[in-house]
Amino acid sequence: MNLFRLLGDMTHLLCIVVLLLKIRTRKSCAGISLKTQELYVIVFLTRYLDLFTMYNSLYQIVMKLVFVGTSIGIVWYMRYHKVVKQTYSKNEDTFRHYFLILPCFVLALFVHLDFTVVEVLWSFSLYLEAVAILPQLVLLQRSRNIDTLTGDYVFLLGVYRVLYLLNWVYRFFMEIHQIRWIPWVSGFIQTALYADFFYYYIKSWKNREKLKLPA
């Protein structure tokens, strides 16, 4: 495991902690897309099917359990917690995320390493993760004022993906010397979707002004 990969996983963990902190301490999920969080639950459940069958390392098992557990916990808070669910931006979170699931599944039926349940769902989870942030980005464009923790959460998600790209560049030259098309192309597209957000986030940080995405 190289440093980029470790930093990437730690950044991913951090952004989930930031989100849980926001929800638990402020009892608010304003500006957070429930649809994106639900897509992440599907991403983790379909990707970690081999959690108990294929042993990689204790690190993998712990991280997978944390990602599945926290993503389900966040959806639970936003859907069922009596106080938090009142703060959900229901009217702005209108992206039809079901329109993302079917195309990713169909693509996985055609593009996969093996035509088995685990492999098709693994590919599906990679394609879905690539587009899962879209409802959240659309919601940010609609939000008049984005609170700092929400902006930080999305920024850290983007940073985790950039670190994974750097991890793949490192592994290509130093380790595997071959291209893993499915995760790398999906991951590249996923990271590219943050470019616009990164620009406005860094601009708002430099100018010390509120984060605002153009509609």
Partner: peptide
């Protein structure tokens, strides 16, 4: 050593 396992990442 370089792991050939394509699922060695999260």
């Amino acid at each position: 050593g370089p792991s050939s396992n394509p699922k060695d990442e999260l």
